[in-house]
Amino acid sequence: MSGYILFSSEMRAVIKAQHPDYSFGELSRLVGTEWRNLETAKKAEYEERAAKVAEQQERERA
């Protein structure tokens, strides 16, 4: 899992709640824009969280 995927899943729900009429493409475009504009430190937080999720998933598969 990547930081972007984690961010995307969280942001998509927020944007969808604010704009229920937006298409999947419109939501994706907005999520991508939000990610590109996100501060580097915040991106790093998402990357760290994603790494922890990936480690947990790997342990569960073992």
Rank of each mutant, 00 (worst) to 15 (best):
I5Y: 14
A44I: 06
A51V: 13
E48N: 06
Y4A: 04
F24H: 14
S9D: 13
V14S: 13
L30M: 14
W35G: 01
E45T: 05
R61M: 08
E58L: 10
E45D: 07
G25E: 14
A51G: 08
K43L: 01
M11S: 03
L6M: 06
Q56T: 11
E34T: 09
E48A: 12
D21S: 08
G25H: 14
M11Q: 08
Q57K: 13
K42S: 05
Y22D: 04
A17F: 03
A13T: 10
G25L: 10
F24K: 14
D21W: 04
A41Y: 08
K43H: 01
K42M: 04
A41T: 11
E47S: 06
A17P: 02
R36P: 00
S8M: 11
K52Y: 10
Q57S: 10
A44Q: 14
F24S: 15
R61F: 08
F7Y: 07
A51E: 12
E45H: 05
G3Y: 00
K43S: 01
Y4K: 13
E45M: 05
Q57R: 11
Q57L: 10
W35I: 01
F24N: 15
L27M: 08
Y4H: 05
F24T: 15
R49K: 09
K42F: 01
T40S: 13
R36L: 09
E47W: 03
R49T: 02
Q18I: 05
L6K: 04
A54T: 13
Y46M: 02
Y22G: 06
K52G: 10
E26T: 08
S23I: 02
V14M: 13
E45A: 09
W35C: 01
Y22I: 14
S2K: 10
G25F: 07
A13D: 15
K52F: 07
K42V: 07
Y22M: 15
W35S: 01
W35T: 02
S9G: 06
F24R: 13
E60Q: 09
K52M: 10
R36K: 10
E47P: 00
I15A: 06
S9H: 15
R12S: 14
W35R: 01
R61I: 12
A41K: 13
E48D: 08
Y22S: 14
V53C: 11
H19T: 03
Y46A: 00
I5V: 11
G32Y: 12
E10R: 01
R61P: 15
S23Y: 01
S8Y: 05
S23G: 07
Q18F: 00
R29P: 02
E10K: 04
R29G: 09
N37S: 07
P20R: 04
S2P: 05
T33H: 13
G3K: 00
E55Q: 13
G3C: 03
Y46L: 01
M1N: 14
R61G: 13
A51Q: 09
L38H: 01
T33S: 11
A41D: 11
S8Q: 10
S23M: 03
S8E: 14
R29V: 06
S2F: 03
S23E: 08
K43F: 00
A51I: 08
T33W: 08
A62G: 15
Q18T: 08
Q56W: 10
Q57F: 09
E26N: 04
K52V: 08
V31R: 00
N37D: 06
E10S: 02
R29E: 14
S2R: 10
A62R: 12
R29N: 09
K43Y: 00
E47T: 05
M11P: 00
A62N: 09
R61D: 15
S23T: 10
M11A: 05
A54H: 11
Q57W: 07
K16L: 09
E58H: 07
V14I: 12
R59Q: 15
V31N: 01
I5P: 03
S8K: 13
F7A: 01
G3Q: 01
F7E: 02
D21I: 02
M11W: 05
F7G: 02
Y4G: 01
Y4V: 02
K16H: 09
G32S: 14
E45S: 06
V53L: 15
G3F: 00
K52N: 07
W35A: 02
Y46F: 06
A44D: 08
M11H: 07
L30T: 12
R29D: 14
D21P: 02
E34F: 06
K52D: 06
V31C: 09
R49F: 01
L6V: 04
L30S: 13
Y46S: 01
A50V: 03
P20E: 04
K43G: 00
Q18N: 08
T40P: 15
Y22P: 04
M11R: 15
Q57A: 14
E10F: 00
A51R: 14
E55C: 13
Y4C: 02
A41L: 06
Y46G: 00
Q18M: 07
L6T: 03
V14C: 07
T40D: 13
L38D: 02
V14H: 13
D21F: 03
E47F: 04
Q18P: 01
T33M: 15
E34I: 10
E39S: 14
R49M: 05
H19D: 03
E55M: 07
L27I: 12
S28G: 05
A13R: 12
G3W: 00
S2G: 10
N37A: 12
A50T: 01
S23L: 02
F24M: 14
S2E: 06
A44K: 12
F7C: 01
T40Q: 12
W35D: 01
M1R: 04
Q18D: 06
E47A: 07
V14K: 15
R12W: 12
P20K: 05
R12E: 14
L38N: 01
E26R: 09
E45I: 08
F24E: 15
E26I: 02
T33L: 14
E10L: 00
K42W: 00
G3V: 00
R12V: 08
P20N: 03
A54F: 07
A13S: 14
S23V: 02
E60I: 08
R49I: 02
W35Y: 03
S9N: 14
L6W: 02
V31M: 11
G25P: 08
V31D: 00
I15E: 04
G3T: 00
T33I: 14
T40F: 07
P20Q: 05
I15G: 02
E10N: 03
K16C: 06
E58G: 11
F7N: 03
I15T: 04
Q57H: 07
Q57N: 10
T40E: 14
A41W: 09
S2M: 04
S28W: 04
R36F: 05
A44C: 10
E55D: 07
A13N: 15
A54S: 10
A13I: 05
E34L: 14
E39V: 04
